[in-house]
Amino acid sequence: MLEIKNLHVKLADEDKQILKGLTLTVPKGEVHAIMGPNGSGKSTLSYVIAGRDGYEVTEGDILWNGESILEMAPDERAAKGVFLAFQYPMEIPGVAGLTFLRTAVNAVRKKRGQDEMTTPGFMKYVKEQAAKLNIDFEMLKRPVNVGFSGGEKKRSEILQMAMLEPTLCVLDETDSGLDIDALKIVSDGVNALRSPDRATLVITHYQRLLNHIVPDKVHVLADGRIQKTGGKELALELEKSGYAGYTGKAA
C-alpha cells in the first residue's frame, strides 16, 4: 500500500512551496488517477516518490508497504518496486537501449535477491515485451530515447516498466502524445500489469485514458493538495466543468 501523509514539498533552493499537505492512499491491487491543473504539483509528487533531487520534504511522509522511502536513494526505491514513467522521458546519447535495459534489470534483480538474467534469457524477454508494445526491436539498439518520437518515448517507458516488474507504478501523463492506436497498446500494457500486489498511480489530463485504464479512484490535485476524491465518474465531471471549483484563484 502506498500512503502519502500530509506531504509538504518545496523547491530545495527556492522559497517555493509546491505540495501543501497532500494525503493519499493507494492500496495494492488498485489503480488511482490523479488529475489537476497545469502546475498544480502532479509531476513534483511523482518525482518526490521516485527520489529526485531538488525537492525538499518539509513535513509529512511517504510510506510504501509500511516503510518510509524518503531517505532512500532512487535506485533503492526502484529495488523496492517503485517505478516512475516520466512525463518527459530523457535521452541518453551513447547508451544503447538494450545495454540500459539489461543493466537496469540486472541491478534490480540483484538487489531483490534474484539471479541475473542470462543474455539469451534477457534477449528473449525483451523481444516478447517489445513486441507486445509494438516497439521495433531495432530501435532498442539505438541510444536510449535519442531521436525517438514523443509517442515512441512513452512506449519505451512502458517497456522499461514491464521489464523491471515494479509493484508501485507511477505514470506521469503517459497518454500525452500518444496516437489513438498507441494509447490502446500502452493501456493494454498497463492493464496487463494490473495485479493484486501492484498499486498504480496514473497522472493524466484526459478522461479518455481512463476509459482504457479504468481507475478505482480519481483524485483532484490542485493548489498542492488533494481537493476531491471520487470514482471514475469524477473524471467525466471534470471534463465538463473543468477545475474552476477546485482552485483558489478561479471563480
Binding site: 521516485a50 529526485r52 533531487d53 532512487p74 535506485d75 530523457m90 541518453i92 547508451v95 540500459f100 537496469a104
Partner: peptide, 22 residues
C-alpha cells in the same frame, strides 16, 4: 540523467560509469 538511470534501479556508481562511457 543520473537520476533517470538510478530511478531504473542502477546504482549511482554504475550509473556514473554508464554516463561516462557514453
Amino acid at each position: 540523467l543520473l537520476f533517470y538511470c538510478m530511478s531504473r534501479g542502477i546504482p549511482e556508481n554504475e550509473a556514473r560509469a554508464l554516463l561516462i562511457e557514453s
